[in-house]
Amino acid sequence: MKKAVLPKPLRGIIPPIITPLLDSNTLDVKSLEKLLEHILSGGVHGVFILGTTGELSSLSYRLRHEFVEHTCELVAGRVPVLVGITDTALAESIQLAQTAEKCGAAAVVAAAPYYFSLSQAELIRYYQQLADQSPLPLFLYNMPSHTKISLEPKSVKILTQHPNIIGIKDSSGNGVNFQLLQYQLKDNPDFSLLVGPEELTAEVVLLGAHGGINGGANMFPKLYVDLYEAALARDLDRLLPLHQRVMQISTNLYTVGSSQASYLQGVKCALSLMGICQNVLAEPLQPLPEKEQTIVRQYLQELNVMLPTNAAV
């Protein structure tokens, strides 16, 4: 399969794509193709599968491997594909990394194992073992809200010394820690610093970070690419209204309902209303109730999104 060249550092907008499903254990390949073409048409710089937005922890191992195969085949080397290999078992992470390498992915991404709470020393050793055995370059993934472990900046600095660890996706939402990380790694220009929360993307890129792995780019890829390019150019007149639109998406679409998974529910509901995929989440998560789907529809209309009349939710 075709494989895209992985720039060092990796820059730009790399959407963490949803996993289109027909049911909890069946990949919707037609919707996956539609989603990828929609995202790539917006000029994104890569795609990231099997992350939090992709419901990694709820998917069977068979489905994860199948998802990697289909995504790499459909992307066909047009942009780098990053594959999430987070797991509680090192062997499972390595097996998925091997599938990713075989299928033509460019790199893998791993958050901390999320059952036992590890010390920083244990976490460093874990990542070093993972990087030693991975056939692809490894991005660290700091996601303390889901893993119960925060990857501290001083630990990241130690891990940058490993030749197979090439970047980090920081989804902590801790802007101070991210700026500390940027400062500590100012002499390591090839190490990619990517932020998860899209509310911070404009700020961190202005300050020298390399881009964002932003969930809203599933729906509005060009908006996030424009945001990144304006921040990179330090064009504040262009950047500020784009950032306001990103904040409008974040505060409206991601907060409907009372579930702690409201972000993911909102993204999938919006994509279904846009006619891109079905509104199916992997168990145990459930889609938004019908009343709340109506609220999402209203928010999309306020954002001037053209919705197909036959879009099913």
Rank of each mutant, 00 (worst) to 15 (best):
S93G: 12
L239S: 02
L242G: 04
I85K: 01
D235Q: 12
T294V: 12
Q301T: 12
L273T: 07
Q286P: 00
A76Y: 12
A131W: 03
A202M: 07
P113E: 04
F178Q: 10
G211I: 04
V205T: 04
N214F: 00
I85P: 01
L27G: 10
E55R: 05
S41Y: 02
P284W: 04
P163N: 01
Y126P: 01
L181T: 14
T71Y: 10
P197G: 09
V68L: 06
K157P: 00
E152P: 00
A282H: 05
F139I: 03
S171Q: 08
I166T: 06
T52L: 10
L194W: 02
E55Q: 15
I14G: 03
L123S: 07
N174D: 15
E122V: 05
V305I: 15
P144Q: 06
I18Q: 06
Q298W: 00
G215F: 09
I213Q: 02
Q244S: 11
V75C: 10
T71V: 15
I39R: 04
T255H: 14
G175V: 15
Q179F: 14
P189Q: 11
S250H: 13
Q248M: 08
R78V: 04
Q278Y: 03
I14K: 01
S117Y: 02
S60I: 04
L40D: 05
Y263S: 12
E152I: 11
S145N: 10
E152A: 15
L281T: 04
V313L: 14
P221Y: 07
G216P: 00
L59F: 06
A233P: 01
Q298N: 10
T52H: 07
L32M: 11
T52A: 14
Q179S: 14
P241K: 06
V75E: 11
P241C: 04
F67T: 14
T26I: 02
T294P: 00
G275D: 05
